[in-house]
Design a protein around this nucleic acid. Structure first.
Lengths: 136, 136
DNA sequence: TTACGCAATGTAATGATATTACATATCAAG
DNA sequence: CTTGATATGTAATATCATTACATTGCGTAA
């Protein structure tokens, strides 16, 4: 089985519950918000959420937004193959726009190459106002 | 006393204490670490640190590293004029390398322009291993 | 089949980071 | 001197994340 192309059958019960919760949300959720939404499904402790999130991130199905301490389902197929993803986060409506840019990736790679730095995980997040909220 | 940027005479007592603490450190510090280092100077509560950091960030003298929940003194003159700064953070030695790249900035600006997103604050952080630690 | 090993899960406690609310102090302008 | 704005002091609380340890479920080798 290739490393990408997961469906929910690859996931344990808790992982699937957390993943479904993130997919159903229209914006990023904190770990504790996920926990609250899964109380009825039997979740009792933050660790259950954090453990599931850890695995989902490793699979590339979920991203952590560092500037929000929150999590979103990946909206881009095969994220685990790319590695460098950027986010635009609207301060007004809370929506998150995920995108990639080869040149962005390549500039960071170039800096790393000239300095000898070996990047393992890259975070790119723009906070601001989305087009819709700007218009409103 | 740091020679570039503003000098400390622009800062209040608490702001100067926090700024000096960050400048004396050879890596990022958490707010609570700063608090501990300033107990003898009279600091008693986290808020004293967070308030000073807020102002120092607004002045461009200090950056917040979102992926670490920690803070560093700016190592690049006139950061407040640039706005988009990138960081490489070594997982092994903890050192932080600050850099800018016009093309990086321009690619993010281009994405923003085509989508109508108005960015207010941009975070770019690479976590990895620096050249020295790789060699060792 | 039992026994073992291993990954996932359950649970409690604690640690780490950040903010709210309200009181007091300082100081320059009127 | 009084007023208003900014800075500061302090306590309490909110929010985010991890450590430690017990238990369960399940595939597999003996």
């Amino acid at each position: 089985m290739p490393a990408h192309h997961h469906d929910n059958s690859d996931l344990t019960k808790n992982q699937a519950l957390v993943y479904d919760t993130l997919n159903a949300a229209d914006g990023p959720l904190s770990a504790y918000t996920i926990l609250d939404q899964l109380r009825e499904a039997g979740f009792r402790a933050p660790l259950q959420v954090y453990r599931a999130l850890e695995r989902l991130q490793a699979l590339g199905l979920v991203h952590r937004l560092e500037s929000l301490n929150a999590f979103v389902a990946c909206s881009h197929p095969s994220c685990e193959e790319d590695g460098t993803v950027a986010f635009a986060i609207c301060e007004t409506c809370g929506r998150v726009f995920e995108f990639t840019d080869a040149e962005l990736k390549s500039r960071l790679g170039a800096w790393a190459k000239t300095t000898g730095f070996r990047p393992q995980k890259t975070t790119i997040e723009m906070r601001g106002i989305c087009a819709e909220c700007k218009a409103a």
